[in-house]
């Protein structure tokens, strides 16, 4: 448990708008590492208490602990301009946390799905979640040295990726590399036909 809880890492005065990006992917694919590499604050986690059925519960109203489980949600922060701050949330991959992920995806700018080429199919679930939520997303292959390398077309085929969905490679441990999925995501949002110039 951390002791220095009174230390706030306050945003710069003038920051008035936030945007949210959700990072999903299977167990140990590098979600926390990704969020930490890009974040300007030490990545932190917020705790959700959930029932076994997967509902987020309000612990102020009192409940019996044996029916609940606690799950941590990693997040990081990146101040982008004088007035805009980006928050990144890394969600747990297990289906029993579906309800929490659904809520997390609401109001998001878009998503990043992380893939380890040694276990590609394990990312299908995260891709499906983004699609069900109608959230634009990019797929980022985290290049673990020990994992096999494939060509882009092989990867697209194995992932059954929609042709318009961007696919990027990155090393989630390096900020300069980890920012590439974020750039790809925002470029993807800008390229969508639904994006009309402001009238």
């Amino acid at each position: 448990m951390r002791s220095s809880t009174s230390e706030g890492n306050y945003l710069a005065p003038g920051v008035s708008h936030s945007v949210k990006i959700v990072v999903l992917g299977p167990f140990a694919v590098g979600k926390t590492t990704f969020v930490g590499a890009v974040s300007e604050i030490r990545p932190t986690s917020t705790e959700e208490r959930m029932t076994k059925a997967g509902e987020i519960v309000d612990t102020l109203r009192g409940l019996s602990d044996k029916n609940t489980t606690t799950v941590a949600l990693d997040f990081g922060r990146l101040t982008l301009t004088d007035d805009i701050v980006l928050y990144m949330f890394g969600g747990p991959g297990q289906p029993r946390f579906d309800y929490m992920i659904d809520e997390l995806m609401q109001g998001a700018l878009g998503g990043v799905v992380l893939v380890d080429t040694a276990r590609i199919t394990e990312s299908w679930d995260a891709m499906g979640r983004m699609e069900e939520a109608d959230l634009p997303y990019v797929v980022a292959v985290n290049t673990f040295a020990a994992s096999p390398r494939y060509s882009e077309s092989e990867l697209r085929k194995a992932l059954d990726l929609h042709p318009s969905t961007p696919l990027v490679e990155c090393d989630v441990r390096e900020k300069s590399s980890a920012k590439s999925p974020l750039i790809a995501l925002v470029s993807h949002l800008l390229s969508r036909p639904s994006l009309e110039p402001a009238s």
């Binding site: 448990m1 951390r2 809880t5 009174s6 230390e7 706030g8 932190t44 986690s45 917020t46 705790e47 959700e48 208490r49 987020i56 519960v57 309000d58 612990t59 102020l60 606690t70 949600l73 997040f75």
Partner: peptide, 9 residues
């Protein structure tokens, strides 16, 4: 996170 309170609370 700073106050170590669950998000729902």
């Amino acid at each position: 996170a700073d106050l170590q309170l669950p998000a729902a609370v």
